[in-house]
């Protein structure tokens, strides 16, 4: 098991009412399983940031690993102390 940080930005932070959380996961994990763990830790995100049916991020949000790099793979390979950033997919402003 490894420990990673989940960081929330914008509306996701307001809904989670927290800037970040730490979760313990397997080093290799399916994206859907990771999101289920996040949803379990922060149920308020369900329906708002996380799609209730698919357990994917809603179109309004992006995932980034240690920055803004998009997560494209269903299977993620993470390291201890990695950060997952959840932020708006709308970059304008």
């Amino acid at each position: 098991m490894i420990k990673i940080k989940i960081e929330f930005f914008g509306r996701a932070r307001l809904i989670a009412d927290q800037e970040y959380i730490y979760i313990d996961i397997e080093k290799q994990i399916m994206e859907i399983d990771l999101i289920k763990i996040i949803a379990s830790a922060k149920p308020a995100l369900l329906g708002e940031v996380i799609d209730r049916k698919t357990f994917r991020l809603k179109k309004s949000y992006n995932f980034g690993i240690n920055g803004i790099k998009n997560v494209n793979n269903d299977i993620m390979c993470l390291n201890n102390d990695d950060s997952i950033l959840i932020f708006s997919s709308q970059s304008g402003g």
Binding site: F9, G10, R11, S88, Q90, S91, G92, G93
Partner: peptide, 14 residues
């Protein structure tokens, strides 16, 4: 969603 709900000031934290 961002524009409607929070506006753009949230860009700063990211």
């Amino acid at each position: 969603e961002k524009y409607r709900t929070t506006g753009t000031t949230i860009n700063m934290s990211l």
